[in-house]
Nucleic acid binder design. Structure first.
Lengths: 155, 155
DNA sequence: ACGTTATAGTTTCATATGAAACCATTTGCA
DNA sequence: TGCAAATGGTTTCATATGAAACTATAACGT
């Protein structure tokens, strides 16, 4: 019986992914790092999760959406949205009423308290974004904007 | 008792985040979309999770790492790595032996079977990356590379 | 050498998550 | 109309995840 062959070294015939240049991998790490930094700013202070904050951000921008529309806009799945909304409504940060014409749909808005929190958190989020972008010069920022536009189908 | 005031419209004094231009948000959606597309290629076929694939990718590139080093390189936490390794070792895709000098450490490598799988999945991952990058022209690709380098501390 | 502190890795426990099943309502169409 | 199919949303269940506690070994200071 032949001795167990030692796996080939990571270089030769195998062509491993060069992770440090592999786009999906780099994006994932970058994105998680940034989102986590922002989350650290508000999670403890307001007892709110990333998904909840994301829902609030969308409602701040687009008042009166249904849960499905929130899910579309946030690229979250509807279960996650449903649960985030349950917590947000419970905490009285979001109000929910039934749609007049279609009783399946809900009509969602930030409450006064929701707006108050939003107005405290949004500047912190923007500040973090600025920190990141400060690593780039003006030209690079323009290219980044342009590249993201091309990579990303906007609704 | 005053009527409950209707929350201000999403435009006026509140300055909601413009999510469609907010970098952390856009990165998050882009990253998830791409990673999921790649995962769809291999998850069912090989019964392997994203974290497990990530561990395998790193070991393909850097043979003989310890679990902690894998965690560092993948930006995953050590619990996630520990669990991924348990599954990978069980499935005989990764071999684990104890370090000679330091018995706390493990020394990790892909097995033959691990390499076989790797060599099937890596080209699919690269193909997905190419699909994404195909949306950019050559100049934009150069800028993207440069921008990621600046935003991202490389180990 | 010996006790203290640090490190590698695993287990536990509580929470987060997603797929599928589910309920209610609406839409499409015979 | 009336009934099948589609849609909005929630619940259930099984799995994934992270923080903290834990085990084992190593390093450090005296």
């Amino acid at each position: 019986m032949p001795a167990k062959r030692k796996p080939a070294p990571a270089t030769a015939e195998h062509a491993p992914l060069q992770l440090e240049h592999f786009l999906p991998y780099r994006l994932s790490i970058l994105s998680n790092t940034i989102s986590q930094a922002i989350a650290d700013d508000y999670q403890r202070r307001y007892d709110i999760s990333v998904t909840e904050w994301r829902v609030m951000s969308v409602l701040a921008r687009f008042d009166g959406l249904s849960a499905r529309e929130v899910a579309e806009r946030t690229a979250m799945d509807k279960v996650a949205v449903s649960r985030a909304l349950a917590r947000l409504v419970e905490a009285k940060r979001v109000s929910r009423v039934t749609h007049d014409d279609d009783k399946r749909r809900s009509v969602l808005s930030l409450t006064e308290a929701g707006w108050t929190m939003h107005d405290e958190v949004a500047p912190m989020a923007r500040a973090r974004e600025r920190e990141v972008l400060a690593k780039l010069d003006a030209e690079e920022r323009v290219w980044l904007e342009r590249i993201l536009d091309k990579l990303q189908p906007v609704y």
